[in-house]
């Protein structure tokens, strides 16, 4: 039963890939929109049926007229619903990488497809109206965006659990404007790859020097980032030096100073013999962050893969990416 369900899901995903290919900007059209009476719409139809029966049995023309009016409204709403939904254009900002356990946020901008950006007024009839509901495909929790607001964008959180590089699932976007009789929806793939870094695990610094690395006789050395003292914060200092714990307690702003801020650097090496590789990766992530904060140059050795020593924001990203990819299929790339 379960396999049947997964097979069906895969099949439908493949069909969706064909029908609505991945793109960072989607303009909704006949190909990408699905429309069907909502549950409420169906019960509305049922009620119209009851009114018809009642009107016919009592030979009551006003009741029949009411019934036909409601049916005509149903018909008109079909088009209104569709057209309102079809003039949407959705674009995304590139998604930011996160550490495992944190929420990634996909930010979607909503525009009108056919209205020039300068001319669309706040309450333009041409602009799509009503509430839009967003959720990740096959997930329950729903996020709303009201198109009658000035802010026409939505931030969609994505819960991450494990490190790795994932293609983001499709985003389901739903509208039931104007009367909730129809449900217009679409499943959009915004072609985003989310990099989830291993969650940092606090640990001792284990930086191998270059020479020892060459001598293959590695022993761990005391770290070079020993915390030395706190001193008052001077405006202009890098914010990552601020002792946020103190600040959070309500104390004055103070900066951490370290005994050896300029180190020669070395290599971080993944301990392949450990049982819990994920924990080791977490430790490495912690160290990468620490070393980058302290602007210590370092390299990274992950089994057969090696990142040459360096420093700075880009280097940090490279290292973290390598950690995220370690052991996955993509690490070969």
């Amino acid at each position: 039963m379960n396999t049947l369900k997964t097979r069906w899901q895969q099949q439908s995903l493949r069909w969706l890939d064909d029908r609505i290919p991945a793109r960072t900007k989607h303009t909704l059209n006949l190909r990408s929109i699905f429309i069907f009476p909502s549950k409420f719409g169906l019960s509305y139809l049922l009620m119209c049926g009851c009114l018809f029966l009642l009107g016919t049995n009592y030979q009551n023309n006003l009741m029949l007229l009411l019934c036909y009016f409601l049916l005509a409204l149903l018909l008109v709403c079909l088009f209104k619903s569709y057209l309102n939904f079809a003039c949407l254009t959705l674009t995304v900002d590139p998604i930011q990488s996160v550490f495992a356990g944190n929420n990634a946020v996909l930010s979607i901008q909503i525009q009108a497809a056919n209205v020039r950006p300068g001319t669309s007024g706040g309450h333009d009839d041409k602009f799509p109206q009503g509430q839009l509901h967003f959720r990740w495909l096959r997930q329950k929790s729903m996020f709303n965006c009201d198109l009658n607001q000035a802010e026409r964008s939505i931030r969609l959180p994505y819960i991450t659990q494990r490190r790795g590089v994932y293609p983001l699932p499709r985003v389901t976007c739903i509208s039931e404007y104007p009367l909730g009789l129809y449900r217009c929806w679409t499943h959009l793939d915004f072609d985003q790859r989310l990099v989830v870094y291993p969650a940092p695990v606090p640990c001792e610094m284990q930086l191998e020097s270059r020479s020892q690395e060459a001598g293959k006789n590695a022993t761990s050395q005391p770290g070079h980032d020993d915390f030395y003292s706190l001193r008052p914060f001077v405006p202009g200092e890098p914010l990552n030096r601020v002792a946020w714990k103190n600040v959070a307690k309500g104390a004055d702003w103070v900066s951490k100073s370290f005994s050896q801020q300029q180190s020669l650097g070395g290599f971080l090496r993944l301990n392949l013999s450990s049982r819990d590789i994920e924990k080791e990766l977490g430790k490495l992530a912690f160290q990468v962050l620490q070393l980058s904060d302290n602007q210590v140059p370092f390299g990274l050795i992950l089994g057969s893969k090696c990142v040459e020593p360096g420093s700075g924001e880009r280097h940090k990203q490279t290292c973290l990416l390598a950690l995220a990819r370690y052991g996955t299929l993509e690490s070969a790339v």
Partner: peptide, 12 residues
């Protein structure tokens, strides 16, 4: 119908 409409476009 206005009540119903308002439920689907509450900020209008």
């Amino acid at each position: 119908l206005i009540a119903q409409f308002g439920a689907y476009a509450p900020r209008m």
